[in-house]
């Protein structure tokens, strides 16, 4: 059992609400890109904020709050992916779990391409391109050598470039 000092809920609850408002949507989308399932992504976000709440006293401010929350969420998503019944990946049909019938929503071209990446590549793409982390931070977070992160990013970029050709890349 992990023991934490009881937080001062009255003073921290407004912070938590602010954190959810500020970071919730981004974390939810990040978790969806990791897990390919909206319900699981919501669970992951809930666990992320629960863990952040519990560990807030240990947050030393060495990174930004966003990076700190991203690291917690990435860890939780990895744990979820490890579970035996979630390990298999599926293709872009994961998007069907989203309510994409809304005519105002654009075609999920980039999302689809990212979801189609193998997990190890998708992970670094989500953290680097979507969450804006540097390769060094990702290497520390994932306990990987930095060249491995760079190599995975390069491979992912190649796949994405092929996949998104004539959609986004010709518009640069």
């Amino acid at each position: 059992m992990i023991l934490h000092p009881a937080p001062d809920r009255e003073t921290r609850r407004p912070d938590l609400e602010a954190m959810v408002s500020q970071y919730g949507d981004g974390l939810l989308r990040m978790c969806f890109l990791y897990l390919k399932d909206v319900s699981l992504a919501e669970d992951a976000v809930q666990e992320t904020f629960a863990a952040a709440w519990a560990k807030y006293d240990s947050f030393a401010g060495r990174s930004s709050e966003k990076t700190w929350l991203t690291a917690i969420a990435a860890n939780i998503c990895r744990n979820m992916l490890k579970s035996a019944w979630r390990r298999h990946t599926v293709g872009p049909e994961a998007l069907e779990t989203l309510s994409v019938s809304d005519p105002d929503l654009p075609d999920p071209t980039v999302t689809r391409a990212v979801l189609a990446l193998p997990p190890a590549l998708r992970e670094v793409v989500v953290l680097h391109y979507y969450r804006g982390l540097k390769t060094g931070a990702i290497a520390t977070m994932l306990k990987l050598p930095r060249p491995t992160v760079s190599s995975r990013l390069a491979r992912a970029k190649k796949k994405l470039r092929d996949e998104l050709k004539e959609w986004y890349f010709d518009e640069e």
Partner: peptide
């Protein structure tokens, strides 16, 4: 692009409640 494509995916009121209640 991802934020635009997934803009329908937001923290719902029920998820917000789960987060706040769960943290308590």
């Amino acid at each position: 692009a991802i934020d635009s494509e997934l803009r329908g995916l937001r923290v719902s009121d029920s998820l917000r409640r789960r987060v706040l209640d769960g943290a308590a």
